[in-house]
Structure formats: structure tokens, C-alpha cells
């Protein structure tokens, strides 16, 4: 199977006014400006790999306290209970609400780590100039981008609970440290996915195709 038979030229499009322009090939890394509206123009997302890596590293660091620290403390009739994400899932499973537990497990535990792993894999594959299944990799990226925001479910649940359950000593829910880190993980993975440029997947192929064409 052959991918991308068409070779894209050294062109760029202004992200603001959609003007398509030629990008000088001699200095591929140089920052460009739109000749019509003056906006910054990039052939590829600027520093895509570095930014994605940085966001991923930050997300990975935040992932540890997000899981170790409790995300909320629920006080019911004076009995305080602090829950981390995992203990919440365990609690849901123990009380027989396993469908809900599964959803929370997937949304809060599996998805963030899957995102970090798949984005990390994408970055690594681009760095290594891999030619392995570019279409699937592009699909992976699309899924990651699509699924990203759903990880915020947990944060939304906590915020809603905090706002709703405010009955003083009877019942009370407080946000704990872990929730901040968890939100940071989600936001950072979204940022990482945004800063990754899927066109990089094809660049390797294009270069080689282009070489083929030229030769």
C-alpha cells in the first residue's frame, strides 16, 4: 500500500486569513509571517515535538500526586472520608455499582494514561522517523484528540458535588489536593495533543516520496 502519493510543496497557510503562501525552503525552521494579515505562519506547528514532550512530561509528573492524593473529602454526619480516584473506583465496585465504577475507571485512570502513552509513542515514532502504519498512527491521534476532554468528567463530578452538597455538618464535600493535579493532567494532555502536529507523521514519507519523485 502506498501512502500519500502526492508531494506537498513547501507551502504554508495562514491560520487566520487562510492565505496559502510559499514557505522558503532554505530555512525550514524560520518563523514566518502572513504577508496579508501579518499573523504568524508555520508550515508545521511550531516546536511540535518539543512542546508535546514537555506537556507529556509535565502530565506524567502530575499524574503521580493526582492518584496519590485524595481528590475530595466527603463528610457525612461528622464521618469524614477522603477518597482518591482509585479508592473511589474501589468503593463503587464494592458497593455493586460496577458499571459506574467502570466508567470512572476508564475516564479517570485508563484514558489519561492511554493518552500519555499513545502521544508519547507518536512523538517517539516521529523522532525515529518511523514509517510504520502512518494511517493508524494518524487515527490514534484523532482518537486521542477526541477523547481528551472526556477525562474532565471526574473534575466536573467533584465540582458539581462541591457546589451541591453543602449541608454543613450533615454532609459536605470538599475538594482536595489531588483534584488539582488531576485537572492539570487532563489539561496538560489536551495541550500535548493540541501541540502535536499529525502532519509530522507524513513528513518522513513525503520526504522519501519527494526524493523518489526528484530522482
Amino acid at each position: 500500500m502506498r501512502y500519500s502519493p502526492l508531494v506537498g510543496g513547501p507551502h504554508a497557510q495562514c491560520p487566520v486569513c487562510r492565505l496559502v503562501m510559499k514557505a522558503p525552503e532554505e530555512r525550514p525552521d524560520a518563523p514566518l509571517g502572513c504577508p496579508r494579515c501579518g499573523a504568524s505562519v508555520h508550515r508545521r506547528k511550531p516546536e511540535s515535538l518539543a512542546r508535546t514532550t514537555a506537556y507529556l512530561v509535565a502530565a506524567l509528573i502530575c499524574y503521580v500526586p493526582a492518584n496519590l492524593y485524595p481528590i475530595m473529602r466527603s463528610t457525612s454526619l461528622g464521618r469524614a472520608q477522603e477518597d482518591t480516584i482509585v479508592s473511589g473506583v474501589a468503593y463503587l465496585y464494592h458497593s455493586g455499582m460496577w458499571p459506574l465504577g467502570t466508567i470512572v475507571l476508564i475516564a479517570s485512570v485508563v484514558v489519561p494514561i492511554a493518552k500519555i502513552v499513545s502521544l508519547g509513542g507518536l512523538v517517539a515514532s516521529v523522532r525515529r522517523r518511523s514509517r510504520w502504519r502512518p494511517r493508524d498512527r494518524a487515527a490514534t491521534y484523532r482518537i486521542v484528540e477526541l477523547v481528551g476532554r472526556w477525562s474532565m468528567v471526574d473534575v466536573y463530578v467533584v465540582t458539581i458535588l462541591v457546589a451541591l452538597v453543602h449541608l454543613g455538618t450533615l454532609a459536605n464535600v470538599e475538594v482536595m489536593f489531588g483534584a488539582v493535579f488531576f485537572a492539570a493532567v487532563v489539561v496538560l494532555t489536551i495541550l500535548a495533543a493540541e501541540s502535536f502536529d499529525p502532519r509530522l507523521i507524513w513528513d518522513v514519507l513525503e520526504e522519501e516520496e519527494g526524493r523518489d519523485v526528484r530522482t
Binding site: 507551502h11 504554508a12 492565505l19 496559502v20 503562501m21 510559499k22 514557505a23 522558503p24 530555512r27 525552521d29 524560520a30 518563523p31 514566518l32 509571517g33 502572513c34 504577508p35 496579508r36 504568524s40 505562519v41 511550531p46 516546536e47 518539543a50 512542546r51 514537555a54 506537556y55 501541540s195
Partner: peptide
């Protein structure tokens, strides 16, 4: 038909790190 992009000077190293 196609305008050429303006080449700008490289700015500071990325603050994303």
C-alpha cells in the same frame, strides 16, 4: 499567484519547557 511567507528572526527558546 502565491505569496511567499515572510521569514522572521528566530525568537527566544521555547518557554514551553
Amino acid at each position: 499567484m502565491m505569496p511567499e511567507a515572510l521569514v522572521r528572526a528566530r525568537a527566544m527558546p521555547s518557554v514551553v519547557w
